[in-house]
């Protein structure tokens, strides 16, 4: 059985009539890295909130269909049980600071304090998590004194330390400067490499192509295409629905119309594929 499973999920926010998610079917396996792409208002955030349990438990509204994670059913679970399995990190790093802690170390320990973890174990787990995300040097700083990128790494570490089965990330780099974004990305890659299941909404197509195992594209609350990064990100469905494509794909497409890129070579999504494609070498994905 898949770790995460959504069957025929339709959801409407309170005080609205139009569903924000329509008939979503989705499975995510243990250890997989799933990326969600789509234009604004396509339902990416809504899907993230659903998998992480905030829909329906925090936002209320009308949820039809079934959501399961690690064998538990969302509707039968409480939010405070659900969050132990599914961790959530979202866009704005500043608003994810608990606000009640004076140092980064304490900030990361906040979740463990709430779970009643013993002090000695707490310290050990916080240190280990900070090492994995590479922020050990920030331990004694005030969370408010950090840059956006650093704050977002603290947010990731604060969830990581609670050891959830699935990590849901809703455009975690969209409000960061390029350097901060890149750094946060590397941390996410590191977490994925450590075997953590990641579901991430992201609009930077090049990055999605770089490390997602599988991609879904959304439009108007529906999944319009699902498959490997190569398959999904080069699909003509993306530009048709106002979803950006990789600059390598765009370049290759343009080159193709002028006969500079082979018709039989699949369109590239990453730099490596583009280099291989343009130099005439075949590549298999």
């Amino acid at each position: 059985m898949a770790l995460v499973e959504l069957s025929s999920v339709t959801y409407t926010y309170p005080t609205t009539d139009k569903p924000a998610l329509k008939d979503i079917n989705l499975k995510v396996e243990q250890g997989e890295f799933l990326a969600i792409v789509g234009s604004n208002e396509a339902g990416k955030s809504t899907l993230c909130y659903t998998i992480s349990g905030f829909i329906p438990h925090f936002f209320h509204g009308d949820l039809v269909g079934e959501v399961q994670v690690a064998g538990l059913n969302l509707e039968e679970s409480k939010l405070n049980e659900w969050v132990l399995n599914v961790g959530l990190v979202f866009q704005n790093p500043f608003n994810q600071i608990s606000g009640s802690k004076f140092t980064v170390f304490e900030e990361i320990a906040f979740g463990l304090e709430n779970l009643g973890v013993k002090r000695s174990e707490m310290i050990e787990r916080v240190e280990r998590a900070m090492e994995l995300t590479g922020i050990s040097d920030l331990a004694d700083r005030s969370p408010y004194s950090l840059s956006g990128g650093q704050q977002q790494k603290v947010a990731l570490t604060s969830i990581l330390v609670m050891e959830p089965q699935v990590f849901v990330l809703d455009e975690p780099t969209s409000q960061l400067d390029p350097i901060g974004a890149r750094e946060v990305f590397e941390v996410i890659k590191e977490m994925s490499r450590a075997g953590i299941t990641v579901i991430m909404a992201e609009h930077k197509i090049e990055w999605v192509a770089e490390f997602a195992d599988r991609v879904i594209a959304m439009h108007d609350g529906q999944i319009i295409i699902e498959g490997s990064p190569q398959e999904v990100l080069t699909s003509p469905l993306l530009p048709e629905h106002g979803i950006g494509t990789s600059r390598y794909t765009q370049a290759a497409k343009q080159a193709r119309t002028e006969g500079l890129f082979s018709e039989t070579t699949p369109l590239p999504v990453t730099l490596d594929q583009a280099v291989a494609g343009f130099s005439g070498g075949n590549h298999e994905d």
Partner: peptide, 11 residues
Amino acid sequence: ERAIAIEARAF
């Protein structure tokens, strides 16, 4: 958002 964030951390 802060309520969501601390709820995600088992508040």
